[in-house]
């Protein structure tokens, strides 16, 4: 599949507070499970932040980095935001972002939920809207302030962050080459209404869930495009921890160098619907013109979205004028205690 669309701008935001895994271990009074997960620390939202405010911040950066930001205020758009911590059960997060960015009211908009793959599903939907001509631009956001039960192993990884991508036909920094999704009904991660924290199926999340879906989506995409994974410069696989993406990369035949820029999970945790997209941001912040990027996200046991991008010369040119890169935001984080972490995430 050839397309003339791509990512025209992007932004990222992580709250500037982190909790170290040894601090979580101290509070849980257990051994540091972060070591086995490969997660040193994770981001924590401020008490006055939520998924909506995180989404607005990332989307604002993406808008400010766009070549013609004012055009979004008049053009037909599409906005999809994926999260598993939408502030409301009924009322869209997307409209809060839409209002804050002063986008044109002529806009298709919906909130998506598919655990950690809701953000990339939104990205794919935006590409479809723009490709079909229904919209002139799309804005896809993955954002989460992930929750975890005190004492649970998910406390080590459930982080907070957001990533936003404008898509369109002109001024692309990364062209979309192809995309493919794969889905089944596999319950490895769920949360019922009125439940505060999600449940997970332990080791079942491995082979039948994460590995099967990422492998299936990726192999289908590569086959469709007749491309060898070794020819791809950067690979991004969803990061529930630092171990799984390395294992799937190995299984698919990737080298550690191909994962080099995508493994930020060890420093920010698993940001759920933002995770794969923030990893993509990290890659785009370092990639060179002509380089290919493979991204496969995964969510809720049950699905994976795979994308193939090719970086354009415009990426390196425009990047020179940008600031507040993701790696700089990570450097500027302050360490907090478990008590502050609980106060902020109640």
């Amino acid at each position: 599949m050839k397309s003339t669309i791509g990512i025209t701008s992007y932004g990222a935001y992580i709250p500037n507070l982190i909790i170290r895994s040894e601090e979580i271990a101290r509070a849980q009074q257990k051994d540091n499970a972060g070591l086995a997960l490969g997660i040193l620390q994770k981001t924590v939202p401020h008490i006055d932040e939520d998924t909506a405010t995180l989404a607005v911040t990332a989307a604002l950066q993406a808008k400010q980095r766009s070549v013609f930001p004012k055009t979004y205020e008049t053009q037909n758009g599409a906005l999809f935001i994926g999260s598993e911590s939408h502030p409301y059960a009924v009322k869209p997060t997307g409209t809060i972002v839409h209002q804050a960015l002063h986008l044109s009211p002529s806009c298709a908009l919906a909130d998506l939920q598919f655990a950690c793959k809701a953000g990339t599903q939104g990205l794919q939907a935006c590409f479809a809207y723009v490709q079909s001509g229904l919209s002139t631009y799309g804005l896809a956001i993955g954002a989460d302030t992930a929750q975890s039960r005190p004492g649970d192993v998910l406390e080590y990884s459930a982080g907070a962050g957001s990533a936003a991508f404008f898509v369109g036909k002109d001024h692309c920094v990364a062209q979309l080459v192809s995309t493919h999704s794969y889905v089944t009904d596999t319950p490895d991660f769920w949360r019922r209404p009125h439940q505060e924290h999600p449940e997970h199926a332990g080791r079942f999340s491995g082979e039948p869930a994460y590995f099967h879906h990422i492998k299936s989506a990726t192999i289908s995409l590569l086959k469709k495009e007749h491309i060898d994974i070794k020819k791809i410069d950067h690979c991004v696989f969803h990061t529930p921890n630092a171990k799984f993406p390395k294992l799937i990369a190995q299984e698919l035949g990737c080298s550690p160098q191909q994962l080099q820029h995508s493994l930020i999970v060890n420093r920010i945790g698993n940001t759920y619907a933002a995770a794969s997209l923030l990893a993509l941001v990290s890659v785009l912040d370092h990639a060179k013109k002509g380089e290919k990027i493979l991204l496969t996200s995964y969510g809720s046991g049950a699905g994976a979205d795979s994308f193939l991008f090719e970086c354009t010369p415009e990426l390196e040119v425009r990047r020179k004028k940008w600031n507040e890169f993701l790696h700089e935001q990570i450097e500027q984080c302050s360490v907090i205690t478990y008590e502050e972490y609980r106060k902020n995430t109640v």
Binding site: H46, D48, A52, T53, P87, Y88, I96
Partner: peptide, 20 residues
């Protein structure tokens, strides 16, 4: 100027955001 929650509302109320 950033967008943040600006009031501690009750769990059934509309969430307040504003500029900080």
């Amino acid at each position: 100027c950033v967008l943040r929650k600006t009031a501690n509302v009750q769990s059934h109320e509309v969430i307040y955001y504003g500029i900080k």
